[in-house]
């Protein structure tokens, strides 16, 4: 481990000391390696691909036996996802079909014998997810940064115990605290509010963010700050002008992890929110549709929910590796 041997001699090696480096056997091995990795990547992506395909299937195509890989794509699933609809009787369908002022969305619904009664609450759920995950991440990273800095730089009585205590809060099965939290939230009137969920996610990410960020801040040499303090900076100024810019990588890594947790959280959201503040995860399984499961609508809903995570993952992928390296080694 790098941490154990920080002063290991790093000799510049200009020639290959490894005899097998250029042999044809090595090239074959490398080829096999690449093939295996690509195969695994494909296997990993099958479910996601399948979901994407399903999102564009019509209802009969989604439950076709055997499953269809080629099909006529349709936006039915998305229409089902974004609207509330109602079944029509045969006479009503005939009546509706005479109308000429229908949009293509209405017509799509009508082709399934349904009429759109209004927008669904999916966009609102997604917005709730964005608010709750976004704000809670800002707070848990912010507060975590302050605590991590203190643990890293000041000698605090019982720091080891405090840090273990902070970590241990992450070990509880969430169900243990759900009921008391529910009762507390009712009493405080923050049940089913954005504030309540933000508070909860902030705290649940805090333990993680303190640990992760402490790892990063430990890496920043103290000498920089000490020099600044000698120059007449206050501690706060030194923190703001030296530590903060230096730990940007760590902040980015922590943000990714906190964001993903808050975005995906299900159990608490299910029990502590109802109609106003409910986030997307507990509502996606309930996109039931009319008279049966509309797999396409569920797939479309999942897809809309996954895309932000995938984008964030790709944009910040180099920090993921860094985040794990620092956070994990220090534990």
């Amino acid at each position: 481990m790098a941490a154990q041997s920080p002063a290991a001699p790093r000799l510049p090696v200009n020639f290959s000391t490894r005899v097998d480096e250029v042999s044809s056997r090595a090239r074959l091995a490398r080829f096999i390696r690449v093939v295996v990795v690509i195969a695994v990547a494909i296997i990993m992506l099958i479910p996601v691909t399948w979901m994407t395909l399903t999102a564009f299937k019509s209802r009969p195509d989604a439950v076709a036996v055997p499953p269809k890989i080629f099909f006529q794509p349709t936006l039915e699933g998305f229409v089902s996802l974004l609207t509330d609809r109602r079944q029509l009787t045969t006479e009503q369908i005939a009546e509706e079909q005479k109308r000429t002022d229908l949009t293509w969305i209405d017509q799509l619904a009508l082709s399934r014998g349904q009429v759109i009664t209004g927008p669904s609450d999916y966009p609102q759920r997604l917005l709730n997810s964005i608010i709750v995950a976004g704000v809670s991440t800002v707070f848990s990273v912010g507060l975590g940064l302050l605590s991590a800095y203190s643990f890293s730089r000041f000698s605090i009585a019982g720091a080891g115990d405090l840090l273990f205590f902070i970590l241990s809060t992450r070990m509880l099965p969430p169900v243990v605290v759900t009921i008391p939290l529910f009762l507390m939230y009712r009493a405080l009137g923050i049940y089913d509010t954005h504030f309540g969920l933000i508070l909860l996610y902030t705290v649940f990410n805090l333990s993680f963010s303190v640990w992760l960020l402490k790892g990063f801040i430990d890496e920043i040499p103290r000498e920089y700050e000490e020099a600044a303090l000698v120059d007449g900076y206050t501690r706060l100024q030194a923190f703001r002008k030296i530590v903060l810019p230096q730990s940007l990588t760590g902040i980015a890594a922590t943000t990714v992890f906190c964001l993903i947790f808050a975005w995906n959280e299900y159990a608490f959201a299910l029990m502590l929110s109802a109609d106003r503040a409910r986030t997307a995860p507990p509502s996606i399984p309930s996109v039931l549709g009319t008279g049966g499961i509309e797999s396409a609508a569920i797939a479309a809903g999942s897809l809309g929910f996954l895309i932000p995570v995938v984008i964030v993952t790709f944009a910040l992928r180099k920090y993921l590796l860094r985040g794990v390296t620092f956070g994990a080694i220090r534990q």
Binding site: V65, Q87, R112, G113, T290, G291
Partner: peptide
Amino acid sequence: SGQAAMIMNYFAFFPALINPGV
């Protein structure tokens, strides 16, 4: 999906079954 010759279900779910669009 045409897999069952008979099904049990609550009457509340039958409207979808007489809807040719579904």
